[in-house]
Amino acid sequence: MNFGFRNFFDWFLGLFGYRKNIRLGIYGETNVGKTTLANRISLDWTGEEVGKVSEIPHETRTIQKKEKIEIKLNSKKIVLNLLDMPGLATKVDYRTFLKYGLSKKQAKIRAKEATEGIIEAIKWLSNVDAVLAVMDATQDPLTQVNITLLGNLEARKIPVILVANKIDKKKAKPNAIREAFPQYPVVEVSALKGKNMNELYEAIAKYARRGK
C-alpha cells in the first residue's frame, strides 16, 4: 500500500513538470557482466567507475550505487540512479571460491556475504523503476533464476530490457535470448568493449521512462 501512495505522489509531482530520477536496477545471475555494464554506463557519462570487476563469482556482494547519471540523447535527457545488484543465485557454495585461491576462512566469509547480497537484491526489487536484466550471451538463458526474475518484474509491472552481454565472444548466441524470451526488448552489447552502448541508451530512454 505504501508503494501505491509513492506512485501517486510521483504522478502528482509529474503534473507540475517534476521528473524524478529513474532508479535503474542492474539484475542478473553471477558473472554475467553486471558490474562491467554499470561501469561502462557510468564511465560513458560521468567518467567514474561504479565497482570492482572480478572473475571470482559474487564479487559484488552489496548494492553499488551511482546517482544522478545524466544521459543525453538528441533532445532527450534522462537522469538515472544506477543500482548495480549482487548476482542472483539459488546456491552459494564456499568451496567454489577455494578454486580461485581464497583461504577456507575467506571463502566462507565471501559465501556468507554473497547470501546476504542476494537477499538484499531481492528486497530491492520493490524499489526500482526499471531493470536491465543482464544475461551472458554465451550461456543458456533458460535458467530458473532468469525466469523467476522476469516473472516477478512482470507481476510488479516494472519495465525491463534484456541485455545480451558478451557479444564480443565467439560463442555468443544473442538470438537464443530472443527466442527464450520473445516478449521482451533485447539489446546486444559488449559492456567490456563498449559495443552497441548507444542502442542500449536509446532503449533505456524508450522503455525505462514508462515507469511503474
Partner: peptide
C-alpha cells in the same frame, strides 16, 4: 509456485 513465492523460496 507463483514468481513471488519462488523469490521467497530463494530468499
Amino acid at each position: 509456485m507463483s514468481p513471488d513465492e519462488e523469490l521467497d523460496l530463494i530468499r
